[in-house]
Design a protein around this nucleic acid. Structure first.
Length: 417
DNA sequence: TCTGGGGTCCTAGGACCC
DNA sequence: TCTGGGGTCCTAGGACCC
């Protein structure tokens, strides 16, 4: 059987662990630049706060209803996630970490219910994070079980282990709530009278493949209990890495933009080195604010192919700046920029180039390693490339940022006795 | 004034090969 | 009147996820 462990309202729960005064109170967490709502506590959901709503439109509503708002604190959420996952790791043979707040684990216990309740209590006691657990034969069914556990079970646990219960659960699940069925597929299916997960299992498979896709066919088979998505415990390297930001304030000036994209490029390199890979293609993009109808709009991207894959800060920053120069136009006001690296290969499987122009790659790579070591021990960007700049005029707005309780010694919680 | 940031997989069609 | 049959690789775009 496969268990899906999913943290409840994860970001909101992380904030609440260190703010017990907010227990049972409505909380929302905002996206970067305090833009949109990206997480809500149950209390906030009950008050009708929607996912993705722009925060500025809801300001008065938040005040009126005593809804506590937080800026995103990804350092905190990332660290809390690590803690939760490490507990799950200790309690399973295989773990497939699907996102920051959920993981599939294999389970072979005789008493599944007892196992799940034990695991749930342990995570809550050790980290303060409440989780829901759904158990079933396939991943898609485990998702459904988890959904039911979260919404309708006080215990936070639900197991789909016999045909009768599975059938009932499938009839109870609207088609758009099935994992992998998004807005488009749901629209098409509803046109043909497929309204629940159960309806989908009653349809001719060849029709599904022809009319929709092989992906939907696999989902259907998973609903029938046939495994199509395996538990994948190998930590597979990313195939694409993106670092992008909306700016705290609009940017006109080329130099500021250069500082921003240089920093994004360095972030991409750090992520590449962390997973011991190199990239041979870089994409840079810049664009204006699409929500501002008074300004002229511009969206530009530049693709750069490298002769040889690399993860070196200096080489990639140089290329990114070259690209920026080609697409930058001074008459626009920019709101967002980003760098994407792709064509990713393992560090130790580098293909050499006959026409390599860069002669001192070894030296570069040594420098990168030292920069990583220093920045890991002394703090992010302590040592940086000059083009990254110092002013960071582009940095994001985070007016309600909580402390990094678990990762920064000076921000650790103080308890007065 | 103010609207996030990261990913994956699949397919059709173009360009090419013999 | 008649114009083959078999492949591969790459990319953009669409669908989905958190």
């Amino acid at each position: 059987m496969i268990a899906l462990i999913d943290c409840n309202n994860f970001y909101a729960s992380c904030e609440r662990v260190f703010r017990p005064d907010l227990e049972k109170k409505p909380i929302v967490v905002l996206s970067n630049n305090d833009g949109c709502v990206i997480a809500r506590s149950n209390e906030a959901k009950k008050l009708g706060v929607k996912m993705g709503e722009p925060a500025f439109k809801k300001k008065d509503f938040f005040v009126k209803n005593n809804i506590h708002t937080f800026s995103t604190n990804f350092i905190l959420y990332g660290d809390m996630s690590k803690r939760v996952m490490s507990i799950l790791k200790q309690n399973s043979k295989e773990i497939d970490i699907y996102s920051i707040d959920e993981a599939f684990v294999d389970c072979y216990n005789e008493n599944l219910n007892k196992y799940a309740i034990h695991l749930r209590n342990k995570v809550k006691k050790w980290t303060g994070i409440p989780v829901s657990i759904g158990i079933a034969k396939t991943k898609v069914l485990a998702k459904i079980a988890n959904h039911i556990a979260k919404k309708h079970r006080k215990s936070g646990v639900f197991i789909l282990d016999n045909q009768e219960i599975i059938k009932k659960a499938l009839k109870f699940t609207p088609i758009e709530d099935v994992w992998g069925i998004g807005y488009r597929y749901a629209q098409i299916l509803k046109e043909y009278g497929v309204n629940t997960a159960y309806d989908l299992t009653c349809i001719e498979e060849s029709w599904i493949k022809n009319k929709l896709s092989i992906v939907v066919l696999r989902i259907t088979q998973e609903l029938k209990g046939i495994n199509c998505f395996q538990i994948d415990s190998k930590n597979i390297a990313k195939k694409k890495i993106c670092t992008s930001r909306s700016f705290g304030q609009p940017i006109k000036d080329y130099n500021t933009l250069k500082e921003a994209v240089s920093t994004f490029a360095v972030r991409c390199c750090e992520k590449l080195r962390k997973q011991k890979t190199c990239a041979s293609e870089i994409k840079i993009f810049i664009y204006t604010n699409p929500f501002n109808p008074r300004h002229k709009q511009y969206y530009a991207t530049k693709n750069i192919k490298l002769d040889r894959a690399t993860n070196d800060n200096q080489i990639i920053v140089k290329e990114v700046i070259k690209g920026l120069k080609m697409i930058y136009k001074k008459e626009y006001i920019y709101k967002k920029a980003g760098v994407i690296v792709s064509k990713i290969i393992k560090e130790d499987q580098l293909q050499l180039s006959l026409f390599d122009q860069i002669t001192n790659r070894e030296k570069y790579s040594k420098i990168s390693k030292i920069i990583d070591q220093l920045n890991n021990s002394m703090g992010k960007d302590k040592l940086r490339i000059a083009t990254q700049g110092f002013d960071r005029n582009w940095r994001m707005k985070q007016e309600q940022l909580s402390p990094c309780y678990t990762t920064r010694i000076e921000e650790i919680l103080t308890v007065k006795v």
